[in-house]
Design a binder for these strands. Structure first.
Lengths: 109, 109
DNA sequence: AATTTTCATCGTATATCGACGATAAACGAT
DNA sequence: ATCGTTTATCGTCGATATACGATGAAAATT
């Protein structure tokens, strides 16, 4: 397997910005905790998350929105609830992107 | 190999905060670009980085400081220059931490 | 000693983040 | 229709982040 074959398209400019955005979404303790919780429960409504986080409902809603817009969490309306589910492939993708960057495998692509 | 054996101590609270801090250092395009450049050159002085980034010298200096304080870059005075070098093991460690988190390997530790 | 080079720091301006309470909107139940 | 529940959004605030130019400090050069 060629090293570059598992490296995302990395013609710069855009790539760095997008990676940065995704890592930014992950760079807050509350959002990490939310993801951890979603990983356990597979799917949660906002209220469930609020019940665990010692943060106001509006704040949790904001964090969830950030995670959704970063593509790490999926949203689905469910009656008066909102179901949030972790997007495992997306999370893995970010981790792989960072791993690729870290091992300097993308030096020449 | 037990799954938990390569998972960092994760008794919560602190762990999430620390991961968040490291990811925050990585979540800026300029800093990603700086790391990429350091990875190629192995060691750079501030001016070299400034020459490539289209940012003011003071701004670059700030970003370098953030990377150093996050432990991702090492600093060494060298005459009137400042040598900055990427800390590959540290970078790998962050990537592994995120990978561990992503694969939900730390659910029960 | 004076000058130049290199870099860090200071001060400042602006933008974004993270938190909250209050409110609105949507839905289910009565 | 009304009420309670659930969630999103708005407005606001303090704090932090990001950028810059100007200044200062240290080392090399003249």
């Amino acid at each position: 397997m060629k090293i570059s074959s598992h490296c995302a398209d990395n013609r710069k400019g855009l790539a760095d910005t997008e990676l940065a955005v995704r890592l930014a979404a992950l760079s807050h303790p509350a959002r990490i905790e939310i993801l951890r919780h979603l990983a356990r429960a597979d799917s949660c409504c906002c209220g469930e998350v609020v019940g665990r986080l010692d943060l106001a409902q509006s704040t949790v809603s904001q964090h969830l929105k950030i995670l959704v817009s970063a593509g790490l969490v999926r949203f689905k309306a469910d009656g008066q609830r909102s179901r949030y589910a972790i997007d495992r492939p997306a999370l893995r993708a970010v981790a792989e992107e960072l791993a690729c960057f870290a091992s300097a495998c993308c030096v020449d692509c």
